[in-house]
Computed example of a mutant assay.
Amino acid sequence: MQTSKDLIALLTLKELGDHSFSGDSYTIGSPHVFGGQVLAQSVHAAYRTIPENRFLHSLHGYFLEAGNLTIPIHYKVEEMRNGGSFSTRRVTAKQQDQTIFILAASFHKKEEGFEHQVNFDTTIKQPEELLSWDDMFVKFGNFLPKPMKEFLSVDRPITFKPVRVPNLLESKNMPPNEQVWFRLKGEKQALDYRTKQEILTYISDYNILNAAFNPNAATHNFGNTQTASLDHSMWFFRDFDFDDWMLFSAESPNAYGARGLAKGNIFTRDGKLIASFAQEGLLRPKK
C-alpha cells in the first residue's frame, strides 16, 4: 500500500446487505490489525447508512480484541437515532463471531454558528527542514533495532516527518508531547469530505501514544513494553484538503497503572484546526 488511492481502496468495504459490510486488512508492521484501519473502516460503514447532507462530527471507539490480519472483518451498523439535525450510529466489528471493536458515531447537518479555535504554534519547524520516516530508514537503517527497522521498512500511503527526532543511539526521557507533520503520497485527488474524514481517522491512530511514552523513554520503548490502543475519540470541526502538509500535535497529561493518556489537535499548515483527538493506551512493561 503505497498511495492514497491504495488507502481509499482498503477503507472501501464490500456490502453484504442489511447494514452489514466486510473489509480486509493491511499490516503497518505490527502482527495485528492496525487500530486506525478498524476505526476508519467503521466510519466508512456508518457513512453508508447516513443521508448525504450529514457529516461526522464525533466518534468514540473501544478496541476489545487484537484483530487477525488474515481474516476479513465484518461490520454491522445499527441506526440508533435519526433526528432533525443529528444521526447516531453504532458499529460492531467482528472476526469469526468475536467482537474486536465497537464504535459510536454522530453525524450532524451543516449549520451556521459562532467560531473560535486554539492558537497554532507558528514557530514550529517546517516539514522541509525535517527527515521523514523513509529518510530515517535509508540514513539510519543499519543502526536501528530490528523491530524499529522492520516497522520503518513497511510501505505506507502517508509520509510522516516528526518535529523532534530522538537520538536512536541514546535513550533519554523527553517532554510528554509529540508533533508530526504528515502528507498523503500519490497524485492529488479531489476527495469529498466523507472520504477525507475516513482517511484522517486512519492517520489519527499513528504516533499518538508516543506522547505518553516520551517521559519514560530512558528505560521504556516499544520493544520492552506491551502496547495497545484501548479507546479512541475524535471530533471534526472544519473541512480541509490533503494538498499540503498537516500537523498532528499530541500531549500526554498522565501515565499510570499500565495506561497512558494522550490528546491533541490536527491543524492544516496555515493553522486551521480541523480535528481534535484523545486516546488511552496500554503501556505494560514486559517482565
Rank of each mutant, 00 (worst) to 15 (best):
P175Q: 15
T201I: 04
Q197F: 00
Q197N: 07
K172G: 11
K185E: 13
N173D: 15
E187S: 12
R194N: 06
F182T: 05
D205S: 08
R194E: 01
N167G: 11
L169C: 08
R183Q: 14
E198Q: 12
Q197E: 02
K188M: 07
N173Q: 13
N207L: 07
D192E: 12
R194P: 00
Y202Q: 05
P175Y: 14
E170K: 15
E187F: 01
K196L: 04
Q197S: 04
E178T: 09
Y206A: 05
W181T: 04
K196I: 00
P175L: 15
Q179C: 10
L200M: 10
P175G: 15
S171H: 09
L191F: 03
Q197T: 10
V163W: 08
N177W: 11
K188T: 08
R164G: 02
I203W: 01
K172E: 15
V165P: 04
W181M: 04
S204L: 07
I199L: 10
N167Y: 09
Y206K: 05
N207V: 09
S171F: 08
P166M: 11
N173T: 12
K188E: 11
D192A: 08
K188C: 01
W181N: 06
S204C: 10
K185V: 08
K185L: 11
Y206C: 05
L191C: 04
R194G: 00
L168W: 13
N177V: 09
K188P: 06
Y206S: 10
E178N: 12
N167D: 15
I199N: 01
Q197A: 02
V163L: 14
I199R: 00
K172V: 14
N177K: 13
L168V: 10
T195C: 06
L184Y: 00
